[in-house]
Amino acid sequence: NQASVVANTLIPINTALTLVMMRSEVVTPVGIPAEDIPRLVSMTVNRAVPLGTTLMPDMVKGYA
């Protein structure tokens, strides 16, 4: 099973992502692959992402 990116904290809308905000976890449904974490750093989220939420491609500006 592939690990996905999961919010390690509440990420407010329009926040630039940092490494400490994200962790990898095997979850269903599958979200952004964990190997993309380095690429996500400094990208911003377009909605509030609660703790434990899987990051989906449409949640990160410029990812999809």
Rank of each mutant, 00 (worst) to 15 (best):
L55P: 00
N46H: 06
A64R: 03
L55H: 00
G31L: 01
R23A: 10
I32L: 09
S42P: 01
T15F: 08
L10R: 07
I13F: 15
T53H: 15
V60P: 02
N8M: 10
V20N: 11
N14R: 10
Y63I: 05
Q2C: 05
L10F: 14
V49F: 03
V6L: 08
T28M: 12
S42C: 05
S4G: 04
I37G: 05
S42V: 03
N14E: 10
T44Q: 14
P29K: 05
M56R: 07
S42Y: 10
V41F: 06
V41W: 03
I13P: 07
I11A: 01
R23L: 05
G62M: 09
M43V: 04
M22L: 09
S4T: 04
T44M: 10
I11S: 00
Q2G: 09
P50C: 05
R23T: 08
I11N: 02
T28F: 09
V20S: 12
M56I: 08
V26I: 15
A48C: 06
I11Q: 00
A64G: 14
T53L: 10
A16I: 14
I13R: 15
Q2F: 15
A64V: 11
Y63E: 03
I32H: 00
V6S: 02
A64E: 13
L55S: 00
V20H: 06
T18I: 06
T54C: 03
V49H: 02
D36R: 09
D58Y: 13
A64Y: 06
I11P: 00
V41L: 12
T44I: 10
N1D: 12
T15N: 05
L10P: 13
T18F: 03
M56F: 10
V45R: 00
A7P: 01
T28W: 12
T9R: 15
N1Q: 13
T44R: 10
A48L: 13
V45P: 02
Y63S: 04
R47A: 13
E25R: 13
V6A: 03
E35N: 15
N14M: 15
T18R: 12
S24M: 07
V27A: 07
T15S: 12
P50K: 12
M56G: 04
P50V: 07
V6D: 00
L10S: 07
T18Y: 03
P57I: 06
L51C: 05
R23Y: 05
A3F: 11
I11K: 00
V49Q: 02
V26R: 08
V30F: 11
L55V: 09
L19F: 11
E25H: 11
P50D: 14
V45E: 01
T44A: 07
G52L: 03
G52Q: 04
T18W: 03
P33N: 10
T9D: 09
A34Y: 05
D58E: 12
A3R: 15
A48W: 13
V60S: 00
V26K: 11
T9M: 15
R39P: 02
V5M: 01
M59G: 03
S42H: 13
G62A: 10
K61C: 04
S42A: 13
V45Q: 01
T28G: 05
P57M: 06
M22Y: 03
P12Y: 06
L40G: 01
I37K: 05
I32Y: 01
K61D: 11
S24L: 08
T44N: 07
V26A: 13
P50S: 07
D36M: 14
T18C: 03
V60F: 06
P12F: 06
T15Q: 11
N1M: 15
Y63W: 13
V5E: 01
N8Y: 05
V41Y: 04
V60Y: 01
A34P: 08
L19C: 05
M56Y: 12
P29L: 05
M59W: 13
S4Q: 02
P29S: 04
N8D: 13
R23H: 10
V26L: 14
E35S: 13
M43R: 12
D36K: 10
R23F: 04
V60T: 01
L19S: 07
L40T: 00
P12L: 07
L19M: 11
R39G: 08
M56V: 10
E35V: 13
V26H: 13
P38K: 14
N46I: 12
V20L: 14
V60C: 02
Y63D: 03
P50M: 10
E25G: 10
T9S: 08
M56P: 01
M56L: 14
R39V: 09
A16M: 12
N14P: 01
L10A: 12
V60I: 11
E35G: 10
E25C: 05
V26D: 07
V5H: 01
S4N: 02
S42Q: 13
S4L: 02
V30K: 08
Q2K: 15
S42T: 12
N46L: 13
G52M: 05
T44P: 12
G62E: 12
N14T: 06
V5Y: 02
V49A: 09
G52I: 03
V49K: 01
L51H: 11
A3D: 05
R47I: 14
A7W: 02
R47T: 15
T53S: 15
A7T: 15
I32W: 01
N1S: 15
G31T: 01
G31K: 02
N46Q: 10
N1I: 14
Q2N: 10
I37H: 02
I11T: 00
T44K: 15
P38S: 12
I13C: 04
G52E: 04
R39Q: 09
P57T: 06
V30T: 11
P33I: 10
M59D: 13
D58R: 08
